[in-house]
C-alpha cells in the first residue's frame, strides 16, 4: 500500500528515536516500501555538524546503519534552513511533497499546555501534509 515512507529525524536526539525507527522499519518491511530519513541542518555550525556537508554525511551514514540493522532500503535527505527553529514545519512539509512520500512516520511528544501556543511539528505535518501521517508518542499515554 505504501511505497515511500519519510521519517523526519533530529540527529541531536538520536537516542529518543528508538520506538519511531522500529515502527518505520516494520512498516517498510511489511509494505515493501523504502525509507527516507529527512534531517534539517542550519547553514551556521550547529551541535550535530559544523557544516551542512558534514551534516549530510552523518545523515547518509545514519541511513546506511538503519539499512544494515533492519534490512530495508533507506536513504537520507538533508534540508538546509536559514532559521531552523521556526522554518522547520514549512521545510518538512515541502520535503514530504518533493520526495513524493505516501506515509510519514515521526516522533512526537505527548501534548502539553504549550501546544496551544506553538503546535508541535508532528501536529503541523499531520494538518498540512498530503501523505498519511503516523505520529509516534515518545512515551505511552498510560505512563
Amino acid at each position: 500500500m505504501f511505497q515511500k515512507i519519510v521519517v523526519p529525524i533530529d540527529l541531536a536526539h538520536e537516542a529518543a528515536l528508538g520506538k519511531t525507527l522500529q515502527v518505520a522499519a516494520d512498516l517498510a518491511r511489511s509494505h515493501k516500501a523504502s525509507l527516507c530519513f529527512v534531517g534539517v541542518a542550519s547553514s551556521a555550525p550547529g551541535g550535530v555538524a559544523r557544516t551542512p556537508e558534514e551534516y549530510d554525511a552523518k545523515l547518509q551514514s545514519f541511513a546506511a546503519s538503519q539499512t544494515a540493522q533492519h534490512g530495508v532500503p533507506a536513504s537520507g535527505h538533508t534540508i538546509i534552513s536559514h532559521d531552523p527553529a521556526v522554518e522547520l514545519n514549512k521545510a518538512l512539509e515541502k520535503a514530504i511533497r518533493d520526495l513524493g512520500a505516501d506515509l510519514v512516520v515521526m516522533a512526537t511528544h505527548v501534548p502539553n499546555i504549550s501546544d496551544y501556543i506553538w503546535a508541535g511539528h508532528g501536529a503541523h505535518v499531520a494538518a498540512h501534509s498530503p501523505a498519511s501521517v503516523l505520529l509516534v508518542r515518545d512515551q505511552d499515554s498510560t505512563n
Binding site: 542550519s42 551556521a44 527553529a85 504549550s114 506553538w118
Partner: peptide
C-alpha cells in the same frame, strides 16, 4: 553558545 536552532520561546 552560537546555536541558531535554540527553542523559539
Amino acid at each position: 553558545g552560537g546555536k541558531v536552532d535554540a527553542p523559539v520561546p
